[in-house]
Amino acid sequence: MTMKLIPYFVMAGNANEAIEFYQEALGGKLEYKQTFGEMPENPEFPLPEEAKSLVSHATVKFGETDVMFSDSFPGQPHQSGNQVTLCISIDSKEKAEHIFNALKEGGQVSMPLQETFFSPAYAIVVDKFGITFQIYTEKAMSGS
């Protein structure tokens, strides 16, 4: 089993600016970036035109450390204090379920553990101490 804890910065519509700032200030290298407009469309949640250029997910490497970024999903509240989360990146759905169940005890589930287009098991949970965790299960590589 492989597991990493990755800082995840959730921005209020200025993720592109933050990515550029931190790359310059800390010598980071953009590894991946996707906008909300590049995601598969969901007819149940139409995306406002002005949100299509916002960052849905990005990864910047600083030395040996990855930091992930996104803008708040359109319509989701954003306030200072909740913009930094820890993303637990793991390669096992079973371990993701175990971690999710442990963290939700006395906490609050923001998004139940479920399959998404980008992960076979993804969830967001605020633990009993008020720390927000994203649980991200990596997709199995083909041929494994």
Rank of each mutant, 00 (worst) to 15 (best):
H78P: 08
Q108W: 06
G130E: 11
A51C: 01
M141C: 13
N42D: 12
P40H: 05
Y22G: 01
T35C: 05
A140Q: 15
E24N: 14
L103I: 07
H98P: 03
P40E: 08
T85G: 10
S119G: 06
C87F: 00
G27Y: 10
K33L: 06
Y136K: 10
K93G: 03
S142M: 15
Y22I: 04
G37Q: 07
I90C: 08
H57Y: 04
L30W: 09
G37P: 08
F21P: 05
E38S: 11
G130M: 11
V60E: 03
A18I: 09
S80C: 14
V67D: 04
H78N: 12
F73S: 10
N16D: 15
A12K: 13
I6Q: 01
E50I: 10
G28M: 03
L30I: 11
Q76M: 13
S119T: 04
S92P: 00
S144N: 06
L30R: 11
Q23Y: 02
Y22F: 09
A25T: 05
A12Y: 11
M39G: 01
A58F: 00
G75F: 00
D127V: 08
Q79W: 03
L5C: 14
A25V: 05
Y32C: 02
P112D: 14
K139H: 15
V109T: 13
D127Q: 00
T132R: 12
Y8S: 10
D127Y: 00
F100C: 09
A96E: 01
T59S: 07
H57G: 09
P48L: 04
G106W: 13
H57L: 04
F36N: 05
P74F: 00
E50C: 11
T65I: 13
K33I: 08
P112K: 12
Y22A: 04
Q23R: 14
S92M: 09
F73D: 12
P77M: 12
I88Y: 07
Q83M: 12
K95R: 15
P74C: 03
F69E: 06
H98S: 14
Q108D: 13
F133L: 05
T85P: 06
T137L: 09
M3N: 09
E115C: 08
T35G: 02
V126W: 06
A25K: 08
L86G: 01
P40G: 02
Y8V: 07
F118T: 01
A123E: 00
A96S: 07
T137I: 02
S72Y: 04
G106Q: 11
K52I: 00
F36T: 00
G63I: 09
Q76G: 01
F21R: 03
F36H: 06
S89E: 15
P120C: 10
A12S: 13
F133Q: 09
M141S: 15
E44Y: 02
P43V: 05
G37S: 08
K104W: 02
S70W: 02
P120N: 05
F117H: 06
L5G: 12
S72K: 08
P7G: 05
S80Q: 15
M111P: 02
L54W: 02
V125K: 09
N101Q: 12
P112W: 07
S56F: 14
L86V: 14
E44I: 00
F129M: 09
D66V: 05
M11Y: 03
E64W: 03
S119M: 03
D127M: 03
T132Y: 08
